[in-house]
Amino acid sequence: MLALLATSAAAQAQQATQPLEPIRQAALAALQAEGDAQAMIAPGLRLAPCGQALIAVPSGAAVAEVRCADTPGWRLYVPVRRTATATATAQARMPNAAEESPESAVMVKRGDPVMLRAGIGGTEVRMGGKALGQARTGGILNVENDSSHRIVRGRLLADGSVQVVN
């Protein structure tokens, strides 16, 4: 009986999360990404399901802000990787691409979800985190690791992820 309840509870918890594919598609559409562009979302990310259409807008040359307007809703900054040709085409399409470089754009704000990256040698570990401050590309900020709740320092990369620094 307990196993049946546990299985039922696990199935309900799994159903109560936002599918990641619509978030990826919205991010790619916001940046008008073509070809082999990839929206970088942690596979373990769990967000409340959105009952409304997702809203996605460019937040920089390689980052899209995707949000759910439900109450309480959520907001996610999604880094998008592209080939060099696709990046040049996308920057030409953005209205302020020539005036605003990615280095001057505020990429993350306090409370925004980010992807933490830590590596030694050829091994890289990625995990979800929450920004504890505001940063621009190349800037240093504190991030709370979602799984361990430890606070680490990292440098914000152009793709919107945060590289842990020692």
Rank of each mutant, 00 (worst) to 15 (best):
I151C: 05
Q25L: 11
P95C: 15
R81S: 07
G51I: 04
A39H: 00
R67W: 06
A16G: 02
L157Q: 11
T7A: 15
S101V: 10
K130V: 14
E65W: 09
V164R: 08
A62C: 12
T83D: 06
L5F: 10
G60V: 08
Q18V: 12
P102A: 13
V143I: 10
G139P: 00
A53Q: 13
A105N: 04
P113R: 14
E99L: 15
G44F: 13
V125R: 09
G122D: 14
A10P: 00
T87C: 12
Y77V: 05
E103T: 04
A26N: 05
T123C: 09
A118C: 11
P49Y: 01
T83Q: 10
L156C: 03
A53V: 13
P102Q: 06
N142S: 09
A39Q: 00
V78P: 06
I140W: 00
A29V: 04
L47Q: 04
R81F: 10
A53D: 10
G119E: 13
R153D: 02
G139D: 02
D36G: 01
A6H: 06
A69T: 12
A56C: 06
A158E: 10
E34K: 11
V125E: 01
Q32I: 03
D159T: 08
N166H: 09
L4Q: 13
A64S: 10
W74M: 04
G160T: 04
I55G: 06
E103W: 15
I120V: 15
A37P: 00
A90M: 15
A42C: 08
S59M: 10
M115H: 03
R153M: 09
A97N: 14
I41H: 04
G121W: 07
V114H: 06
P72T: 03
A13M: 12
